[in-house]
Every structure is written in C-alpha cells, then in structure tokens.
Amino acid sequence: MPESSDLHTPAIDLTGVEFHWGRRSGFSLDVPRFQVARRESVLLLGQSGSGKSTLLSLICGIVTAQSGKVTVGGTDLATLRAGARDRFRAEQIGVIFQQFNLLPYGSVADNILLPLNFAPERRQRAGDAHAKAGHLCQALGLPSGLLASPAGRLSVGQQQRVAVARALIGNPPLIVADEPTSALDAATQDNFLGLLFEQTAEAGSALLMVSHDERLAPRFDRVLRLEDIARIERAAA
C-alpha cells in the first residue's frame, strides 16, 4: 500500500475549496467540506453539466483551486508542481470515463498498462504487470486471449471492463469514475457494477463515482447530491 500508512487519512479531503474557470466564464464551484474515507465507496449524484466533471478535475489535479485545500491520500495537491501532479495522478488514481476510455489503436494490454508508463512506483506495486493485467481481465470476465487484440474492436461493455482493469492495475488507493455505466444497457450495467465493486474491494481502493442515475445508489457506502456538498454559480447565459 502507498506511503501514508495511516488508515485514518481520508482518500479525498476538500476544505474551503473555491474554483472558477477564468474570471469572465461566470462559472464557479465552492466546496466547503467534502471527504471520502479510505476504502469507502461514494456515489455523487448530479445532473449532467452540474459541475461534476470540474470537481473530478480538481481531485485529479488537472485543475487547481483558487483557494482552499484539495488533499488526496494525505497529499496537498497545491504543494505539487504541474508535472508532479500529473505523476501523482498516475501513481495514486485510477480513472474511468463514461465511454471512449481506450486508445483504439493500442492492444488491450497496452491500454491496461498505459498508466504504469508514468508511474514507476505503481509499476513496482503491480509486480509482473502483464500477468497482473491477465488476472484482472479474467476476474472481470473478459475472454482470455483478449489482451493482444486491438482495443478498438471490443464491444462497449468489454471496453468499460478493460477501463476498470486499467484503473485497478497497481492498486491505486483511489478510483475515480465518471458515469461509467451510462453507455451500458441495464443488464450489463448491473454485471459491470458488481465486478467493479468486487475488484475495487480486492484492491483496497476507495471509489468515487459521479452519476445522474439514482438507481445505482444501493450499492454504495454513502450517497451524496452534488448540491449538498457544493455551491455552484453560473452566469445567466
């Protein structure tokens, strides 16, 4: 497990965060307090365009808050330079998108191993990364021998599962998922979520998922609405 062995350090801790996209955009996001504990799974509900993605960008260190503190796994992101934040993201966070998660021209293995290129420590944690990728695929119910095939040929459901394998390889302490089920049909959704929870628990990672779909709620430790934790303003356009 990563450096901060203190089990009480939250996976995510936002305090007094104020963020706006440039001065004139009129969009601002204030988060007085938001925490996700280690190994906790949290569902954040919000309509599309409600600022969920901006919040995830803040947590992933893609954008930085104008004031307040964003701490991930005990590290204050504001203390890191841009390059170090990118490295930190690679080491500590597994990211799953809504869809189009994979580089279509790379093989499944290439895609799963991609973050390890930018995260030497995570690569070390993964051990025999190629074998690990195979195990993850197997655990996620992907046909064996899929590793070598081009990612672009997979079905959407398979692609999302490969994205989960990629997020989990090397056991990052935090998994961030942005509407990962919205491109899947109901049956596949359920199966997908089951696998996601199972593997996240196995890896010992915390899971923060944003979605507009309230039906997902029962599986999570905690369910929050974005408007409960954040104050969002946008200029009347």
Binding site: I62, V95, A119
Partner: peptide, 16 residues
C-alpha cells in the same frame, strides 16, 4: 482531443 484526454488522465504530462 478525446485520445489526448485519455493520455492526460493516465498521468501523461502535456509535454508527453
């Protein structure tokens, strides 16, 4: 752009 977003999310610096 989508592809670049994937690279970025995986921890690639803009320099990459």
């Amino acid at each position: 752009r989508r592809e670049m977003a994937i690279w970025r999310a995986m921890g690639a610096r803009p320099g990459v």
